[in-house]
Simulated assay, not measured.
Amino acid sequence: MSADRLAEPDVTTWNRHEALFLDRLKTSLDLEDFTEYAACREGREKRIWSRARIYQGEKLDRVMVSQYSLRRGRVGLVIFAYPRVEYDIPVFLLHVGGMPPERTLLTLDLAPSSPGMDLSPFCAVAETHRPALDLPDTPLEWLSAVTSPHILHCAFKPLDPDGFFAAFEAVVETWLHHYIERAERDLDPVSVQARRETLLELKKEVFRNDPAFPVYTRAFGKTMSDVLAEAAFGGDPGVSIAEEIEPPPPSGSWVNKKLGVGWSADAQERVHEAPVFIRPMIRRIIEKEAAKEGMAQVDVDLVLRCEKKYRGGDG
C-alpha cells in the first residue's frame, strides 16, 4: 500500500470540522510542522484506518487531531488540545463518532486547566446549543472530575449534522477569541504548578476511562494503541503510558466465593480492557450470568456473549 493512501483518510463526515478547526487556529499553530501517526488494515470486505497529527504553537503545547474509521459508516474525529503551562487556557476536548447522524457519540468541552478558571463564555455557548441539539443537561459522570459543568455530550443518539457543526464552530471561536488570543504568559511558580497538576490529572482521567481506547486496541493492536495514547496524552506535562496501564489480574485472582464462580485468565483480560470505573459492574453482571448457567468458571465466550447481550449487539 502506498504511503499516500495510508496517510490520507477517506472522505468522512468530519472532514469539514477538521478543516474549520485548523483554519481558525492557523495563526495559533504551526500547521507546516507536525508529526503524523497512521495505521491501516485492509481485507476483502473491510478497511479500517486511523490518522493522527500533532501540532504545536506558541501558547499550545500539544494539539492532536485524529480521524478514524473502524467499520463502514462508523467514523470519528478526536481533537485534544492542551495549553502550555505558562498560559491560562482551557483544554479543548472533542470526541465525536459512532454511526452518525442516527447514532452519534459526542463529547465536546472546554475543560479547565487551572482551579477557578472563568468558563462563563463557554457556558453561554453551551446553553445556546444544548437545547437546539437536544443534549442532556447533566455531567458526563466518568469525566466529571476534570471537565467543565457545561460539557456537551450524548451517547449514541440522533444528532443534527448542521446543528452540531454550528455548535462546534461556536466552541472553536470561543476557545480562540476568549482564551487563546487573550492569554498572557504567566510564570508565577504557584500558578504554573497548579496548571501542571490540573492538566496531568485531566490526561490521566481521560486515558484511564475513555472507552475508545479498548476498542482501538482491538482494532489495531496494542502497539499502535500505545502510540495513539502517547500522541493524545504526551507533552508537558505528559502521562507515562507504561506507568498508567494497570497490569491484567493474575490468572485465578478473581473468585466469587458466594456464587462459586471463578475466572479464566483470558476472560479476566477481556474485562480488563474496559474502562476502570465500569469493570466492577461488568464483573458482577457476568458472574451472575455464570451462576445462572451453572458455570463454575467464567470463560471468554461468556464474556463475549454478555457484551453482545448488554450492548444490544453493537459490541
Rank of each mutant, 00 (worst) to 15 (best):
F233N: 04
E197Y: 01
D4H: 11
E184W: 00
L25S: 03
C40E: 15
S264I: 01
R71V: 05
I48L: 12
S28C: 13
L106C: 07
S240Q: 10
A232D: 09
W175D: 03
R5A: 04
S66P: 00
Q297S: 15
D61Q: 10
T27I: 09
F213D: 08
L25P: 01
A38T: 10
F233W: 10
G57R: 06
R195P: 04
D301F: 15
T128P: 02
I241K: 03
I278H: 08
D118E: 12
M117V: 01
L31I: 10
I180M: 10
L6D: 14
D160Q: 05
P121W: 04
R51F: 00
A219H: 11
W175N: 03
E32L: 09
V91N: 06
A38N: 14
E287C: 09
K288R: 14
R44Q: 12
F220T: 07
E273W: 12
L199S: 07
E246N: 09
E307I: 12
R185H: 09
K308V: 05
R51Y: 00
F21T: 04
D61F: 03
S120C: 03
P139I: 00
L108M: 07
P9C: 04
I79Y: 14
A7Y: 08
A291I: 06
S225D: 15
L77Y: 01
P275V: 13
A183L: 02
L60H: 11
G312F: 06
P250N: 06
H272I: 00
P214A: 13
P9A: 03
D134G: 01
K204S: 10
H150Y: 15
E287M: 06
K308N: 12
Y87R: 13
G73H: 03
F168K: 02
A145T: 09
N209A: 09
L202W: 10
K258I: 13
P83I: 05
A145M: 07
V255P: 00
I54N: 13
L302S: 00
E181I: 00
H17V: 01
T217G: 05
M117L: 12
A81R: 07
L187I: 13
T174W: 10
F21N: 02
T104V: 05
E181F: 02
E243F: 13
R16W: 01
G163Q: 09
Q193M: 12
E289C: 11
K308Y: 12
D10R: 04
L119G: 11
R270G: 09
A219I: 09
L140Y: 02
F207V: 07
V172F: 01
T223N: 13
F34E: 00
V298H: 10
L60D: 07
V63C: 12
H17Y: 15
V171H: 06
E42M: 10
L140G: 01
E243D: 14
A265L: 08
H272Y: 02
V215K: 06
A194K: 13
Q56D: 08
P136C: 04
R47W: 15
M64I: 14
L77K: 06
R53Y: 02
P161E: 03
K203R: 09
G315D: 04
Y55P: 04
D188G: 12
W14S: 05
V146D: 11
